[in-house]
Computed example of a mutant assay.
Amino acid sequence: MIPYGKQDIVQHDIDAVVSVLKSDFLTQGPQVPLFETSLTFITQATHAVAVNSATSALHIACLALGLGVGDWLWTSPITFVASANCGLYCGAQIDFVDIDADTYNMCPQKLKQKLIKAKVEGRLPKVVIPVHLCGQSCDMQAIYALSQEYGFHIIEDASHAIGGRYQQQPIGNCKYSDITIFSFHPVKIVTTAEGGAALTNDPSLAERMRLLRSHGITREPDNMQGQPHGAWYYQQIELGFNYRMTELQAALGVSQLNRLEEFVRQRHYFSDRYNRLLAHLPITRPYQLPDTYSGLHLYVIRLSLGQISKSHSQVFDELRANGIGVNLHYIPVHFQPYYQNMGFKMGNFPDAEHYYQEAISLPMFSAMTDNMQDEVVSVLTRILESEA
C-alpha cells in the first residue's frame, strides 16, 4: 500500500534521539528550548511554545486570548475537529465560515457577510481560526483587516503549512495573527512523532501559554505571591495542563527542521508532476493563489462526477483496493454527530459540503518516488476511464 503520507526518518534523526536517551534529560532539558529557537528562526516570529500536540497548542492559544463561556469561536468546516473542539474546551460556542470554492480555505467574503449579520445580532466572534488547508495560506491580509474592523483575535491553524510562505514571508511570522499553530504529527511536513507549537510576537501571550502547558506552575519569583521558601520553591498560579513536549520529541524536531526546505521542495516536485500527469483526467487539480507558496502537506483532487460513471466512494474504494492509500481531508466538522447535536445540519455550508462530495487526498510525501507516483496515476487513470 502506498500511503497518502508518512514520516521521512534518516540516520541523523535517529542519532539525535539516541543522543537524548544517553543524556541526563528526557524531559525539560535543553532540546525543547533549542527546538523553539529553531522555529522562531524559520518563521521570524518572536516566541515559540512547544507542546505535545497541535490540539494542545490550539487549546492554550484560546485560553491565552481569554476565550471562555459566552464567547464565540469561528473556524472552517473543512478541518480536523480539533480546530473547533479547542473552543469547546474553553466553554465557548462554535460556528463555521464556509470555504472558498477554489482554495478550500476560509472565504474572506463569506466571513465578512457573516460578521455583518453577527454584529446586528450581538454575537461577534472573540476568536477566528482560519485553517491553511493542505499547506496553502488563507488570505490572511483580508482576514486581518476584518479583525481590525470587527474586533476579533486570530489564531492561524497552520498545522499543514510549516515551510510555506504568504506574500513572500514565512507562514508562522504572525504578521496577520495573534498566534500561529503548527503540527508535527508523523504525516505532517516535519515530525516530532507527536507534537505541536504555538508561535506569537506577543510576550504576554507566550508567557501565559508557557504557564498553561505545565500545570500553571511558575518558578519565577516575580510571578509568585509572597517570597520563595527556597531554591526548590514553585507555585501553581493558574489551572494549567501537562502539555509539555519531551526532549526526545524536540531532538527529533530539531533534526527534521534541518531538512524543512528539502521536504517542501520535494513536495512541490511531486505536486508539479501530478499536475502534468493528471491533466487529462476528469478531475479538478489543486489551485494555488499567486501570492502563496504552499507547504503542500496534501495533494487533494476533486472528482468531476458528472463526467465519470462511478461514484465518489467507488473511486475511493477501488484506489485502496489497488494499493493506493488515499484519504479524505476532511469530513465537514458540522457533519459530526457531536456538532449535529448542537443544531448544525446538512446545508449549512454548501461549498464545504460540495467539496466533501468530490475530494480525495492522493499520496504525497517527501520520500515518495517517481515509480510510486506513476503507480498512483496509472491506477487512478484506469479507474476513471473504466465503466462502472
Rank of each mutant, 00 (worst) to 15 (best):
I9K: 00
Q11T: 07
D15W: 01
A16S: 14
L26T: 11
G29A: 05
L34K: 15
S38Q: 13
S38E: 13
I42W: 02
T43C: 04
V51R: 07
A54P: 02
H59Y: 14
L73V: 10
S83W: 09
N85V: 12
C86T: 13
D95T: 12
D98A: 12
T103Q: 07
N105T: 15
M106L: 15
Q109Y: 04
K112N: 12
Q113R: 10
K117F: 11
K117S: 13
V120S: 14
P130G: 01
V131M: 04
C138S: 15
D139A: 13
M140N: 15
M140K: 09
I155D: 08
I162F: 02
G164F: 06
G164K: 09
Q167S: 05
P170H: 06
I171H: 00
N173A: 12
D178G: 01
I179R: 08
P186M: 13
A197H: 02
P203R: 02
S204K: 08
E207H: 06
M209C: 13
L211Q: 07
L211P: 02
L212R: 04
D222Q: 14
M224E: 03
P228F: 11
H229Q: 13
A231S: 07
W232K: 05
G240P: 14
T246L: 06
T246K: 00
R265T: 10
Q266K: 11
R267C: 02
R273F: 04
R276H: 12
R285P: 03
D291H: 11
G295M: 08
L296D: 14
L298A: 12
L305C: 12
G306C: 07
S309F: 00
Q314N: 07
D317E: 14
N322T: 05
N322H: 15
H334N: 14
N341W: 00
G343F: 09
G343H: 10
F344H: 08
F344Q: 11
K345Q: 14
D351M: 04
A352V: 03
E358M: 15
I360M: 02
S366G: 02
N371K: 15
V379K: 11
R382Q: 15
E385Y: 05
